[in-house]
Amino acid sequence: MSSTVLYLAIVAVWAVVLVPMWLRRDTEATAFSRLLHKKPDESLDEPTLEEETGEAEETLDEDTTPAPRRRPGRAAVIARRRRRTTGLGLLVATSIAVISTGLAPWWVTIPPTLLLVGHLALLRVAVEMDATRHRAEAEERAQARAEARRLAETQETAEVIELVQPAEEEVFDQYADDRRVVGG
């Protein structure tokens, strides 16, 4: 009975890791295209047959190369952290429920609890790093504003020169009511 519970606990811990990976896994076509577009420096250390014979050809057009991956946005990172924390919390709660029903020994809660504590420690470090980065960005913005203000103060103001209007010339208008004959 206890070995069954142990196997169930192992499956539950791996489910916390694997389910998010399955939810965001690539389709076969995407994974295959990534393999095709792999850069030479990302390839294995062993040379391929084409590289050995020197007959390597460029078969892909520039239009088919994938765009470089962007870093996830702040909201995506926070959502991922929240999902991970919730999943680990549910895993700890489930292990406590299994222990309280007598289906498993007390030590079954140790792995999920260690995972949750480790995750919370990493979150604390991540929050400190985010705060440091935000302070540095705010400091840079303040320095840029101060530099712009200093440049604006040191710049000389331009002297406004009043332009003299040329004498008003009469323009011939063919549609005017008081048309004159030229030369008369």
Rank of each mutant, 00 (worst) to 15 (best):
residue 24 R to W: 14
residue 112 P to E: 02
residue 148 A to I: 01
residue 149 R to Y: 13
residue 181 V to Q: 09
residue 148 A to Q: 15
residue 32 F to E: 11
residue 157 T to I: 11
residue 55 E to D: 15
residue 1 M to T: 15
residue 72 P to K: 10
residue 26 D to C: 07
residue 139 E to P: 01
residue 94 T to F: 10
residue 5 V to P: 05
residue 107 W to Q: 12
residue 113 T to R: 06
residue 60 L to Y: 02
residue 46 E to A: 12
residue 70 R to E: 14
residue 151 L to H: 06
residue 30 T to V: 06
residue 161 I to S: 14
residue 93 A to I: 13
residue 75 A to K: 02
residue 168 E to W: 10
residue 171 V to L: 10
residue 48 T to E: 03
residue 168 E to K: 10
residue 171 V to S: 02
residue 148 A to M: 08
residue 106 W to T: 15
residue 174 Q to A: 10
residue 62 E to L: 13
residue 37 H to Y: 03
residue 41 D to F: 03
residue 178 D to H: 12
residue 109 T to I: 12
residue 57 E to I: 02
residue 24 R to C: 01
residue 117 V to L: 14
residue 138 A to R: 13
residue 159 E to L: 11
residue 119 H to L: 06
residue 14 W to S: 05
residue 39 K to P: 00
residue 72 P to F: 11
residue 102 G to N: 02
residue 78 I to Y: 04
residue 149 R to L: 15
residue 111 P to G: 09
residue 174 Q to L: 14
residue 45 D to S: 14
residue 145 R to C: 00
residue 83 R to P: 00
residue 59 T to N: 06
residue 28 E to N: 08
residue 51 E to C: 05
residue 145 R to N: 10
residue 33 S to A: 02
residue 183 G to N: 14
residue 30 T to L: 04
residue 86 T to Y: 09
residue 109 T to N: 12
residue 64 T to E: 15
residue 142 A to R: 15
residue 179 R to V: 05
residue 5 V to R: 11
residue 37 H to G: 03
residue 165 Q to M: 06
residue 102 G to R: 01
residue 179 R to D: 07
residue 44 L to T: 07
residue 37 H to I: 04
residue 180 R to K: 11
residue 8 L to G: 07
residue 175 Y to N: 11
residue 155 Q to S: 14
residue 14 W to K: 02
residue 41 D to M: 03
residue 21 M to T: 04
residue 23 L to A: 10
residue 35 L to G: 07
residue 100 S to M: 09
